[in-house]
Amino acid sequence: MEVRTIKVFTTVDNINLHTQVVDMSMTYGQQFGPTYLDGADVTKIKPHNSHEGKTFYVLPNDDTLRVEAFEYYHTTDPSFLGRYMSALNHTKKWKYPQVNGLTSIKWADNNCYLATALLTLQQIELKFNPPALQDAYYRARAGEAANFCALILAYCNKTVGELGDVRETMSYLFQHANLDSCKRVLNVVCKTCGQQQTTLKGVEAVMYMGTLSYEQFKKGVQIPCTCGKQATKYLVQQESPFVMMSAPPAQYELKHGTFTCASEYTGNYQCGHYKHITSKETLYCIDGALLTKSSEYKGPITDVFYKENSYTTTIK
């Protein structure tokens, strides 16, 4: 009895394709271990004539594949690729409408935090270190965002349907971005203890939790000093293409032309909904596939993004 075979390709990165001759009487799992086709788990399936010449994702289970996976995804987590594939199996079914010149995501599976993050990423200057993220990001900007969303979920250790947080998501993504040249110098002034300067680099240099107003941050924000008295913390120097200011959701007025974009969060910790506000020729609110415009805006804002380049204080 002759062994019926077909020729397929296996890959971990969709760049390096490895030619395989597979036995049609055995499952993919018996031949390769966990195997995925377009995100779908085909591990328990036997090869079919229609699979001839198709590319299958496999887990990096030998040295060659491990090197290829690390170079593309910059992670050695053995569960990463499987999590990416199972997320992709959902995100490829989502709709990605162009809204006001940006790629958004039609609401499904509690994905409003991903839509808000995706919209924000198209408006701030950011370059990702893992080629996987950078490639998928370019495709997302062009309207094909399924891979990018699935990668975000995998890097953030999230599953489809789980509630997510924009600030946490951005923080994970910033860790995989090139923020080497970003720098922030802060000064804390206390009447009792004097003053202390701190220099922050990388992710810490672009994120701040405690106030939404970048102007206020430049002037000074009140913080408790270690001595128990009130101290003032203010920005001395900022070198970065953008800054992200966050605070627990509270009524906040966004003035046209003073910011790049913002995240609105309605609801409580267990259950809520994100919308995205962007400042173009007027203010726009993007909620999944829905767009509304207004000249002014007041609502429960939790993150505001500002364009920056270089700032030095005039406070002496």
Rank of each mutant, 00 (worst) to 15 (best):
V3Y: 13
V3Q: 11
V8W: 02
D13N: 00
N14T: 14
N16A: 10
H18C: 09
H18T: 09
T19I: 11
Q20R: 13
V21D: 13
S25W: 13
S25T: 14
T27G: 07
Y28H: 02
G29M: 11
Q30T: 12
Q31I: 10
P34D: 08
Y36M: 06
D38S: 10
G39I: 06
V42A: 09
K44I: 10
N49Y: 13
E52M: 10
G53K: 12
K54G: 12
T55D: 05
F56P: 09
D62M: 04
D63Y: 09
D63N: 10
R66L: 11
R66T: 08
E68L: 08
E68R: 07
F70W: 08
Y72K: 11
Y73T: 03
Y73R: 03
H74C: 02
T75F: 09
T75L: 00
F80M: 05
L81I: 15
G82Y: 10
R83I: 06
M85K: 07
A87N: 09
N89A: 13
W94A: 02
K95M: 08
Y96K: 01
Y96C: 07
Y96H: 07
P97T: 10
N100K: 13
G101L: 03
T103V: 13
I105W: 03
K106R: 15
W107L: 05
W107V: 04
D109T: 08
N110G: 09
Y113V: 05
Y113N: 02
L114S: 08
A115V: 12
A117C: 11
T120P: 06
L121H: 01
Q122H: 03
E125N: 08
K127S: 12
F128Y: 06
N129C: 04
P131W: 01
A132L: 07
Q134T: 10
Q134N: 05
Q134L: 03
D135E: 13
D135H: 10
Y137N: 05
R141M: 13
R141W: 06
A142K: 14
A142T: 13
G143P: 07
E144K: 10
A145H: 01
A145C: 06
N147S: 08
F148E: 01
C149E: 03
L151S: 07
A154S: 09
Y155D: 09
C156V: 13
C156Q: 08
N157W: 00
K158P: 10
K158C: 05
G161F: 04
L163T: 13
G164F: 02
D165H: 07
V166S: 01
V166N: 07
R167D: 03
E168T: 15
S171K: 14
Q175T: 09
Q175G: 10
H176E: 06
A177D: 07
N178S: 10
L179G: 00
D180Y: 00
S181H: 15
C182D: 14
C182Q: 06
C182R: 03
N187I: 05
V189M: 10
V189G: 06
K191R: 13
K191T: 14
C193W: 00
T198D: 08
T198Y: 14
T198V: 14
T199L: 06
G202C: 04
V203I: 14
A205T: 02
A205E: 04
V206Q: 04
V206L: 02
M207L: 06
M209E: 13
T211C: 12
T211W: 03
Y214R: 05
F217P: 02
K218M: 04
K219V: 07
V221H: 11
Q222L: 11
C225D: 00
T226D: 11
C227Q: 02
C227K: 03
C227E: 01
C227Y: 02
Q230L: 14
Q230D: 07
A231R: 04
K233C: 14
K233D: 07
Y234M: 09
Y234S: 07
Q237F: 13
Q237G: 03
Q238S: 04
Q238F: 02
E239W: 02
S240M: 00
P241C: 01
P241G: 09
F242V: 04
M244Y: 01
M245T: 00
M245D: 03
S246L: 05
S246P: 01
A247Q: 02
A247I: 04
P248H: 13
A250L: 05
Y252H: 11
E253C: 06
L254D: 05
K255H: 07
H256V: 10
T258F: 02
T258K: 06
T260L: 15
A262R: 02
A262V: 08
A262E: 04
A262N: 08
T266R: 08
T266Y: 03
T266F: 08
G267Y: 15
N268H: 04
Y269C: 15
C271M: 15
H276K: 00
H276Y: 06
K280D: 10
K280H: 08
E281N: 01
T282S: 12
T282K: 08
Y284M: 12
C285G: 05
C285I: 15
L290V: 14
L290Y: 15
L290K: 14
T292D: 12
K293H: 15
S294G: 07
K298D: 07
T302W: 00
V304H: 02
V304Y: 07
K307P: 15
E308L: 08
S310H: 14
T314C: 00
T314H: 15
K316T: 11
K316P: 15
